[in-house]
Design a protein around this nucleic acid. Structure first.
Lengths: 352, 352
DNA sequence: GACCGATATGCTCAGGCTGAGCATTACGAA
DNA sequence: TTCGTAATGCTCAGCCTGAGCATATCGGTC
C-alpha cells in the first residue's frame, strides 16, 4: 500500500456567527478530490458540485509563536475578519481523513478551532461564504419541534441495529442509539452533536461514509478488508440527510457545535456573537439558534436578569412590532462574582 | 536566531489513578536539559535533580491508524498498563515549549491525552512511577480547608498586580486574580485549575516561569526583548510553590485536572478509577480526591443513589471500623436513561 | 453481656431554583 | 379608540440542595 510516512500539521477553523435566526458557519468551496466521489445526493449542493469545506491553513512554525496566532493570521488574510473569541477544539489525525493519503499523500493532522464573530462583510482573498450550520446537521434543529428528518434517521439506525448478526452487538448498537437519539423527545441532549454524527457515520447513514467507503474499496479493491468503522453495508435506497462536507469537516463542525452548546451554559461566550447592546429577545434568539431548542421566554429573562448577566441601558428598541424592548448590555463584572456565568444555566431544555 | 523550521508531532499522556486518598499521576524522570536550569527550589525534588515529566511518545503515522491508538501502543509498552478510558485533552504547540528549540531544535507539537486507570503494578520498559498530583499543584487541594500555600500565592499575586505601572493593566490583573483565586473561599471554582496555573506562570510565581525566563535570556542575551508573557521581573526572595515539571508539563497536568473535574459532574468517568464493587464512602473519597473539596456525606449518598447511578449488590464490607458498608456497583443502564449522569452533579461545592 | 467508639444509613426541613402559566403594559396600525 | 403584537411583571407548585438530627450495626472493652 502506498504510504509515505510523512506528517504535516494544519489548522481548521469553525467560524461562527448568528444572522437573524440562523447560526452560520464560514465555508469555502473545495475542489472535489478525484477519489472523493461527489455523493451528496442531499438537498443543498447539486450533484457533481464540490462540497463545502471549512477554511484550512497550514501551520508555519517559523512564523507563528502559537498555533492560535497562526490561525488568526491566515483567517485574517482569507476573510478580513478579526477574530475575537477563539478556542481550540480538537486535533484530528485519523488515517485517511484526507483521501489523498490513499495515493501516497502525507498524513494531515489538523488542529481544529472554533471562533465566534459578529457577522461582518467578508473581504480578503478567499471565496469564503456563510452557510447555516443546520444545512449540514439538520437533525440538530429542534426549535420548531422534532425535525422530520429524525424519523428517517431512526429508520436507518433501526436497520443498522438489525443488520448485526451477533445479539450482543445488536444490544450494544441499541444502547448507543438510545443514548444519543433518545427515544422520548423530552430527553434530547443538545450537547451530543458529535456523538450523534459519529454514530451516523459508523452506521453508514451520512454521505461521507459512502464516499470514504468507495474511496477505500476503489483503492484496495473490492476484495480488500474494510476497516471496522466502515463495516456496515449500505442500503442502496438510502438518501443521506444533510449537506456533505469535504474530508472529515462535518465531524469537525459537529465537534464545534457540541463544544459551543456546552460552553453556553457556564461561560458568557454568547455575547461574542451580539452587538454591544441588544434586547433580551435577541439574546434569547441567539441562544436558541445555537442550542437548537426553544426556550421559555419569561424564564429566560428571569434567568439572565437575576443572574445579573446583563444590565439595562435605559435605551429602547421600538422596531419590535409591539411594546418597545429595553436594550441591555453584558455586565462584565459578573466574571468576578459568579464562578460559572452563562445563559440557560439550567434552561437549555425543551419547552413543552 | 537559530530556527530550523521543522515540526514534529508527539503525544503526552496524563495517566491518572487514585490510591487511598491520593490522586496520582504517572511520571518519568527526565534528564534535565542544559538550558533548563534546575530551578526547583520547592519541596519535592532536591535541587539539581531532574524534574518529573509526563510520559511522552512520538507519533508514528505509518504505524498507527489514529493518534489515540498510537498513544495506547507506546503507553502499553512503557508501563504495561492497558488504558481504559482515554480522552484527548489539548494540543500544545507554543514556540519554545521545548527549550531545545532555542538551539535550533524542531518545534514539537504535542497532543495531550488524559487516561484513567485502576491502579496496578507497573511493568514494561520504563522507569515510570506514581506521584500525587497535588505535589505539583498543592493549591488545588482544599479537602482539609484552605491550603496554607494560598496565602503565599495571594501575596505574590498582589505584588504582581502592583508591579504594573499602568492603572488599566493593574485593574486587569486585579480582575484576573479575583476571577481565578476568588477572594472569598466559598466561591472557589474547582474547575479553573488551568486558568490558575497560567496566571501563576505569567505572574512569574512558578518555577517554570523562572526557568524559561533564564533560558530565554541566556540565549538572546540580557539585552534581548522578553516576550510579553515573561515580562514580570521576579522577586528574588520568592520560593516557587509546588514541584516543577519538565517543559510545559505542569500546564498539561493542569489541563487534565480541569477537564477531569468538569467531566465528573456530567459523565460517569469516576467509575473508571474504581473496582467493580465499592462502598459509597470509597466513591465519595475518590470524588473528593479528584475535585479537591470535601463533600457532605449524606447528601452525596442521596445524590448518587437517587440518580440511580449505582445499585446495591447485597454484599458488605466489614473492614470499616464501624457498621459494615454495603457494596455498590455502577449501573450502566443509567447511560440510556439520563442525559448527563455524573457524581456531584451539583455537589462539587465546599462543605461549610 | 452491657457499653463505647466509629461508621453507615435514614430522615426532615427550610430555602432556592425551575417549569409553567396568567396578567399587565406600551407601542404601531387600522 | 380599538386591535394586534410584543415586552414585561408576577405567582405558585414541585424539585433539588444544604444542613443537621437520629438511628442502626459493627468491633472491641470492661
Amino acid at each position: 500500500m502506498p504510504e509515505s510516512g510523512s506528517t504535516i500539521i494544519g489548522l481548521n477553523a469553525v467560524i461562527v456567527a448568528v444572522r437573524d435566526l440562523s447560526p452560520r458557519v464560514l465555508v469555502v468551496r473545495r475542489a472535489s478530490h478525484a477519489l472523493a466521489t461527489p455523493a451528496q445526493r442531499g438537498e443543498p449542493a447539486a450533484a457533481g458540485e464540490s462540497p463545502d469545506a471549512l477554511p484550512f491553513g497550514p501551520f508555519g512554525p517559523e512564523r507563528h509563536r502559537t498555533l492560535e496566532l497562526g490561525l488568526r493570521d491566515w483567517v485574517g488574510r482569507l476573510t478580513g475578519l478579526n477574530l475575537g473569541y477563539v478556542e481550540q477544539l480538537y486535533t484530528f489525525g485519523d488515517r485517511f481523513r484526507d483521501p489523498r493519503e490513499l495515493e501516497g499523500g502525507p498524513r494531515v493532522v489538523s488542529v481544529g478551532y472554533i471562533a465566534l464573530v459578529r457577522e461582518a462583510p467578508l473581504s480578503g482573498s478567499g471565496e469564503a461564504y456563510w452557510r447555516d450550520w443546520y444545512d449540514f446537521l439538520p437533525w440538530e434543529d429542534w426549535r420548531n419541534g422534532r425535525p422530520p428528518v429524525i424519523d428517517t434517521l431512526r429508520d436507518g439506525l433501526q436497520q443498522w441495529i438489525e443488520r448485526a448478526n451477533d445479539p450482543d452487538t445488536r444490544q450494544a448498537r441499541r444502547d448507543r442509539v438510545a443514548m444519543t437519539f433518545s427515544q422520548e423527545d423530552a430527553t434530547w441532549d443538545v450537547e451530543r452533536v458529535l456523538e450523534r454524527h459519529e454514530l451516523l457515520y459508523e452506521a453508514g447513514l451520512v454521505a461521507e461514509a459512502q464516499r470514504d467507503r468507495r474511496a477505500w474499496t476503489a483503492q484496495t479493491g473490492s476484495g480488500g478488508v474494510l476497516p471496522p468503522w466502515m463495516e456496515a453495508p449500505l442500503d442502496e435506497s438510502w438518501r443521506p440527510p444533510g449537506g456533505a462536507m469535504a474530508l472529515d469537516h462535518r465531524r469537525i463542525l459537529a465537534t464545534a457545535m457540541s463544544r459551543l452548546r456546552g460552553k453556553l451554559k457556564y461561560r458568557p461566550v454568547i455575547f461574542e456573537l451580539l452587538p454591544r447592546e441588544f434586547t433580551l429577545l435577541r439574546l434569547q434568539q441567539v441562544a436558541e439558534a445555537l442550542s437548537g431548542v426553544p426556550l421559555h421566554k419569561q424564564n429566560f429573562r428571569r434567568l439572565v436578569t437575576q443572574a445579573r448577566l446583563v444590565e439595562p441601558t435605559g435605551r429602547f428598541d421600538s422596531q419590535t412590532g409591539g411594546r418597545p424592548a429595553e436594550l441591555f448590555q453584558f455586565r462584565r463584572e459578573v466574571l468576578r462574582e459568579r464562578p460559572a456565568p452563562g445563559v440557560g444555566i439550567p434552561a437549555l431544555r425543551l419547552v413543552h
